[in-house]
Simulated scan of single mutants.
Amino acid sequence: MAKENAACVLLRLSQVEESKAAIGRSGAIPLLVCLLESGGFHAKKDASTTLYSLCMVKENKTRAVKAGIMKVLVELMADIESNIMDKSAYVVSVLVAVPEARAALVEERGMPVLVEIVEVGM
């Protein structure tokens, strides 16, 4: 429960523009990626929203890619049961602004997943 509460606090702090870079430098991004991968539904939801907000800052996009976020996001987008497919795609839409994220998306086989989402409209 403490992890979920901390993610919620980081979510609130990430809404303040001046905090985004500082949160990224603090080492929180790899931990949020881990929570996105293995947390419960609400933890994943808060982690994805926090990561979306933090990744408005370019250097945080790079940090997230280095932390392995694209693998996690592709898995969540491919899993209809995850119930955060749309939030995951939303985070991907912000990340692909940097070349590292685009390359990671292709490497993690994310393109067919995106095409399937568009095709099937999950």
Rank of each mutant, 00 (worst) to 15 (best):
K3E: 15
E4L: 01
E4C: 04
A6I: 13
A6S: 14
C8K: 10
V9D: 11
L10K: 01
L11F: 09
R12K: 13
L13D: 02
L13H: 08
S14M: 03
Q15I: 15
V16Y: 12
V16K: 10
E17F: 07
E17P: 02
E17C: 08
S19H: 14
S19D: 15
A21D: 11
A21K: 15
I23T: 02
I23Q: 00
I23M: 04
G24H: 09
R25A: 14
R25F: 03
S26V: 11
S26R: 09
A28I: 07
I29Y: 06
P30I: 12
C34T: 12
L35C: 04
L35Y: 05
L35H: 00
E37Q: 14
E37A: 14
E37S: 06
S38G: 06
G39R: 03
F41P: 11
F41R: 13
H42E: 15
A43D: 09
K44M: 04
K45T: 07
K45A: 09
A47K: 01
A47L: 10
T49G: 07
T50Q: 03
T50F: 00
L51A: 11
Y52K: 08
L54D: 02
L54T: 02
C55K: 02
M56F: 15
M56Y: 14
K58F: 07
E59L: 12
T62V: 12
T62A: 11
T62N: 05
A64W: 01
V65Y: 07
A67N: 13
G68V: 06
I69G: 04
I69P: 01
K71F: 09
L73Q: 09
V74P: 01
E75C: 13
L76N: 12
L76W: 04
A78D: 12
D79M: 05
I80S: 15
I80K: 13
E81D: 12
S82T: 11
N83I: 03
D86L: 07
D86M: 09
K87T: 13
S88A: 15
A89D: 08
Y90V: 04
V91I: 07
V92G: 05
V92D: 06
V92W: 01
